[in-house]
Design a protein around this nucleic acid. Structure first.
Lengths: 121, 121
DNA sequence: TTCTTTGTTCAAAATTTCCGAACTTTTGAA
DNA sequence: TTCAAAAGTTCGGAAATTTTGAACAAAGAA
């Protein structure tokens, strides 16, 4: 298996970062990774998604996050441990990831309130 | 011609905003609109793009920005005047647009320096 | 009216994404 | 060792999205 490619943040276009996080599944996975103490493998992380997706699609999503410089994936035995590269991205694009993670949280909160109060109350 | 649709920011998923700005042409157009005092029509704004694109593609790009709640387009005679909806987006997702606009500026700056100093100097 | 300018819509081509099947790598059990 | 299971990757075709030229619509000027 070819070694995984991890670009320097300086090599990653801003558009690639935004594209990586413009997918519902990917931004959810990334925010979850950011919020964890310990790195987790891909299959475990899939559990945070609302809709189940194919294993090959999940692999592709992790590749997109990795090549956007957002996560680092290390092989640990048979699994991959994924960690966020927040500090590196922050060094180049200050405030970017924090704003997106916060926005995601705000959206989740709004959805939760919408669900608990079905129609105008 | 059907009236243009402008969603409430609360109705726009975060992913739609990120997707709208994940395209090189769209983020460039948007950042340009944000930086202008006066609203501009679509054709004029096309001049800020590096690569020329088809008129129909440009129209589609503005539609994507509009439906992501990022710009407001008003018909003024035969042309469309576009303005950014920064304040509204800021109210829901604090810091998001500022961070992206700033990141875009940082990237432009880095590209400029790279061009003036071709290979390691 | 007729022409020009600006932007939209439509349908087909080009590109990207998703998924199932097959494959690789590593671990652990027999 | 050998075999099987687990976790991901790769590949090829199907499905979805994007791009584009051509035709169309609307407003204003001649």
């Amino acid at each position: 298996m070819r070694p995984l490619f991890h670009p320097e943040i300086a090599e990653v276009p801003l558009e690639a970062i935004l594209h990586a996080l413009s997918d519902p599944a990917r931004v959810t996975l990334f925010v979850d990774i950011v919020g964890r103490e310990c790195s987790q493998n891909c299959s475990t992380l899939q559990a945070v998604l609302e809709k189940p997706i194919a294993k090959s699609t999940l692999s592709q999503h992790f590749k997109v996050l990795r090549e956007a410089g957002l996560i680092r994936s290390e092989r640990r035995g048979v699994e991959m441990l994924n960690t966020a590269r927040c500090a590196e991205v922050e060094a180049r694009y200050p405030g970017l990831l924090a704003a997106i993670v916060k926005a995601h949280s705000i959206q989740r909160q709004a959805e939760a309130e919408k669900t608990s109060r079905p129609a105008g109350s």
